[in-house]
Design a protein around this nucleic acid. Structure first.
Lengths: 196, 196
DNA sequence: AGATACATGTAACATGTTACATGATTTA
DNA sequence: TAAATCATGTAACATGTTACATGTATCT
């Protein structure tokens, strides 16, 4: 389980509450490994119960500050050194590219163009974030910078790829688009379909 | 749910059995969106029960061939056109970079170098795959090529980034490595920890 | 006093993984 | 005939999401 070790990893840098950790996920770590509020609090309880974390302080409003203890440090090292990472990120954006044949060319082109624009936006955001962060010299800063650089390169690459791909898809031919172009009437609400 | 739509998307290209689909995941699609055998068969049953797929043929050894029907086609289009993709891939590899502060510099450098090597290997594999595929002119070929190109660029970028990052981490200073360098004895098996 | 930010917890549900269980057909 | 490949299904468990539920401290 990665969330567990993500938590241990961030706590290696110093004690923090669930709320603090949630902010880390929202602002930086969440770009590589998202986590919900519910998940973080549940997992912190479990980690404390399992003896990998200590509650090192309790503050106002029920705040609990967790600290990595020796058992936690060992488990974190064990995970980093002895387990093989999953190298392939799971990318919904790319899955969609794969099945773009279900759309007309114009629609497919539009999607890829949107991906490119999103990538450009992410790049802008990252450059903005970079200039706003105080890069003090601690461990998290060093490795945070590595991840940020990866992000910058990733979004730049994605933007360029999207430009290339849009050209590759080419112009819509009149009357093209296969049968999928005619959206027929009856939608026959299925038992599935949930997301917005 | 994306697996559901991945299945519909592949079936847009033509009828296939669970076994066939599993091969698609293993050979190509699985790089962007992994799926297990168990998941695929379960989901196909559900999709058929929900009326988005038909069992269009039954063959030897209990083989069932599924076809996308009109309801399925509509649902696929709806998903592609009306739902927003999750743009951030969840990357365990990058999560690990983020928490590399728990290791010594030498260990961190080794990990990043390994990532670079893996990326290089993926690149080689993709180029090999590319030359072995017959690029006929159907829809899947067009979009499959887009995904393949993305992969090539991604792994090349990752390889370059890793080279840069290795230099960035720098040389191990003697006696450096923080407290995390001393692996103490007692391992105190925790109730957690599962993966090998 | 009201809005915002701080702060945690849990229940229901959806999705994903691992392991088990079974058997038929083809190929060497 | 043994091994490999084809072919599906299910149960137990782990992980992740959404929604609900509750309350405190700070700032304007």
């Amino acid at each position: 389980m990665s969330l567990r070790h993500a938590l241990l990893g961030v706590l290696h840098d110093g004690p923090a509450s669930g709320y603090d950790l949630l902010r880390v996920f929202r602002l930086s770590l969440g770009n590589s490994w998202p986590a919900t509020q519910s998940q973080v609090y549940t997992e912190l309880s479990r980690l404390a119960a399992a003896g990998l974390l200590d509650v090192s302080a309790e503050g106002a409003r029920g705040r609990k500050e967790y600290s990595l203890n020796e058992a936690g440090r060992l488990e974190l090292r064990r995970w980093l050194l002895e387990t093989k990472p999953e190298r392939h990120p799971r990318s919904e954006a790319l899955l969609r590219v794969f099945i773009l044949g279900a759309l007309t060319r114009a629609e497919a082109r539009e999607y890829v163009a949107w991906l490119g624009q999103s990538a450009a936006d992410e790049g802008v955001m990252l450059r903005h974030l970079e200039s706003s962060v105080t890069w003090d010299d601690d461990e998290i800063a060093v490795h945070g910078r590595l991840v940020m650089e990866y992000g910058k390169r990733l979004w730049a690459m994605t933007e360029e790829w999207a430009e290339w791909a849009v050209k590759e898809i080419g112009a819509e031919e009149a009357g093209e688009g296969s049968e999928s172009a005619e959206a027929s009437g009856s939608a026959e609400a299925s038992e599935l379909s949930a997301e917005g």
